[in-house]
Write a protein that binds this DNA or RNA. Structure first.
Length: 596
RNA sequence: CGGGAUGUGGCGCAGUUUGGUAGCGCACUUCGUUCGGGACGAAGGGGCCGCAGGUUCGAAUCCUGUCAUCCCGACCA
């Protein structure tokens, strides 16, 4: 392709809207154009990158035995109602774009495709003999993100590869899950992306085992907790660790103490020489349930621990079968709006009476009481007395009327010891989520009544897995990891072009002629080559070539008359003066070997 | 949605406090001189100053409303 013909417009100034380097470079080098918030046009150069990524993804996913499909983006509400996701995906700040057609039928614009694919599987797969089946597609997905940002990193329309697998038993699902794990690692490494697999929360999609692939980058939105030897890594939402040992409370009798103006852990500790680990703090949240119910939660935590809200949502779902669509701390205004008397905030105890909720307008009038393991393990502790300005020391769970539901709802912190290996400590790094694999189990097949006939003639729900890769996000993540002050440095495997020939002076006939010859020869060799034939000064062409990030550059310049060119490698910035034929030889052996 | 900020040619910005009818750099066009790391000079083209009302003889500038964009939080490939 000739640069003079490719609608290339590069920007010298950094667009004001772009915050992170990869986004700035995509805009400056003319790869993408913003159309509206979170919605981008992929310009010709970008499309080539995406197509390269797609073909790597296709190769590796096809190799797992998966079949490519293309599913509709417009999806009927009924399917989403069956899985119970229509409300949570559309109501309030729902993430699904949705609309009504002219007959008034409700449709959603696909943020994901479990409903569709499971329905298709249900209608197509009737016997265990047809299993397992893996289906996938690569196409645009739509999510009405609360806050789109960072260009393609979090956009509202984005390209995703999503695969879904169907199995007759859990073991088989596990096998495919492992295959995908391996395929994903190959894909990311072929794309030149450094990733860390982490244990993940399975979020709104639901399910059992789940792993995220994080591209490590300072600009990443996710915090990853990782052990020193990298054996363990988890999303902060899911991370577990060994909490520090509590400082035992010296023996003593249960007694109420005066604690005026000591409504925080800090104040309480500094005034009474307590250690935060000797205290139980109590927090009240409201869990908004899928069916609209508002359940007050009375949560007990050890004073030195922090609450992990995601773990609470999961606990409610997994242990109590409550599907929570929103979780938020209560406020004084809300208590008033409920028509209730004020709570003794700052002095709450785990035994706060349900009578505080009597007469609530929309809240349920019984607390759901849960506590973190670190709290329930304390034999003796200090806690609020449910009376302003008073705490209780040497309290025990017995005296409080028993131990509430004991679960892990604390945040793992940097410096904690790891559960898998107590010689390791946790530290944190930032990452960009580029892939996610789940073992869904039978959640969707059950709710959509997707069954097949098993060996003994009975009906059974499919075991399912789902596996996503954010294609457009991945492309940008690669830039985040591969750039310098001059621009992008594409790995050759996904570069839009492999070589750019810069003719230093287009008025020089010798240079132009040699450039054109070289261009044609390289094309014949099957190399993807750009010819910068623009009537620009050499400096402009060099700057643009660096900015675009093409892995190799050939400069046809002063030495053209001696049949020599300069070969420049973008990543190392090494330049070699070479005879033309030697350069061709070198490139035609080197480039194909590094494409993989 | 809550908190913060900004909207002025394609991009980056000044002008707004103290109303007088729009300017700078980059990019674009033409000519000349240059010609290996974003050249220089000269001459040009392009903007109803986000939009709608209002105040005023007169509004980019003041007032009201509205829309959009970006940043911080919840969301997620």
């Amino acid at each position: 392709m000739r640069v003079s013909r490719m609608m290339l417009v590069t920007l010298r100034d950094v667009p004001a809207d772009a915050e992170i380097v990869s986004h700035q470079l995509l805009l400056r080098a003319g790869y993408i154009k913003r159309v509206t918030s979170g919605i981008y046009a992929y310009l010709p150069l970008m499309l080539r990158v995406l197509q390269k990524i797609n073909s790597i993804v296709r190769e590796e996913i096809n190799a797992t035995g998966a079949l490519e499909t293309l599913l509709p983006q417009l999806q009927p509400a009924e399917l989403w109602e069956k899985t119970g996701r229509w409300n949570s995906y559309t109501a309030g700040e729902g993430i699904m774009f949705h609309l009504k057609d002219r007959q008034g039928r409700k449709l959603g614009i696909g943020p994901t495709h479990e409903e569709i694919i499971t329905t298709i599987a249900k209608e197509t797969i009737h016997s265990y003999k047809q299993l397992p089946v893996i289906l996938y597609q690569i196409q645009s997905k739509f999510r009405d993100e609360i806050r789109p940002r960072f260009g393609l990193m979090r956009s509202r329309e984005f390209i995703m590869k999503d695969a879904y697998s169907f199995h007759s038993n859990e073991d088989d699902l596990g096998k495919t899950y492992t295959c995908m794990d391996i395929a994903y690692k190959k894909i990311f490494s072929r794309c030149g992306l450094k990733t860390v697999p982490v244990d993940a929360d399975s979020g709104a999609i639901g399910g059992a085992a789940s792993q995220e692939f994080m591209a490590t980058a300072e600009a990443g939105e996710d915090l990853i907790m990782i052990s020193s030897n990298r054996d363990y890594a988890a999303n902060q939402e899911k991370a577990i660790s060994i909490p520090k040992r509590p400082k035992p409370l010296p023996t003593g009798n249960t007694s109420i103490i005066n604690t005026p103006n000591q409504s925080t852990i800090d104040e309480l500790c500094s005034s009474n020489k307590f250690d935060p680990s000797q205290i139980i703090k109590v927090i009240i949240f409201i869990a908004k349930e899928e069916n609209g119910g508002l359940q007050p939660l009375l949560i007990s935590l050890r004073g030195d621990q922090k609450l992990n809200e995601v773990k609470i949502v999961n606990t409610l779902h997994n242990k109590l079968g409550i599907n929570v669509i929103d979780l938020y701390p209560i406020t004084i205004d809300e208590i008033r709006n409920q028509g209730l008397c004020e709570f003794p905030f700052g002095y709450l105890g785990p035994d706060l009476d349900d009578k505080y909720l009597l007469g609530a307008k929309t809240w349920k009038n019984k607390f759901l009481r849960i506590a973190d393991h670190t709290a329930t393990k304390l034999k003796l502790f200090i806690c609020g007395s449910n009376k302003e300005n008073h705490h209780v020391t040497h309290m025990s769970w017995d005296k409080l009327g028993g131990i509430p539901l004991s679960v892990d709802i604390r945040k793992a912190e940097v410096g904690d010891l790891c559960v898998h290996d107590q010689t390791q400590t946790l530290s944190s790094i930032r990452g960009i989520e580029v892939g996610h694999i789940f073992q869904l189990g039978r959640k969707y097949s059950d709710s959509l009544d997707a069954k097949y006939t098993n060996e003994s003639g009975g009906q059974e729900s499919f075991w399912m897995g789902c596996y996503g890769i954010g294609i457009s996000r991945l492309a940008q993540a690669v830039i985040e990891q591969n750039h310098d002050e001059n621009g992008i440095i594409w790995p050759i495997s996904i570069a839009p072009y492999e070589i750019i020939i810069s003719i230093a002076n287009t008025k020089d006939k010798t240079q132009t002629k040699l450039g054109e010859e070289l261009y044609n020869k390289l094309i014949k060799l099957g190399i993807e080559v750009l010819l910068d034939d623009r009537k620009e000064r050499a400096g402009v062409k060099f700057k643009d070539a660096d900015l675009l990030g093409i892995p190799w550059r050939i400069v046809v310049g002063r030495e053209a008359e001696f049949n020599k060119i300069e070969l420049f490698e973008r990543s190392s910035r090494n330049t070699t003066l070479m005879i033309v034929d030697d350069a061709i030889k070198k490139l035609s052996s080197e480039i194909p070997s590094k494409r993989s």
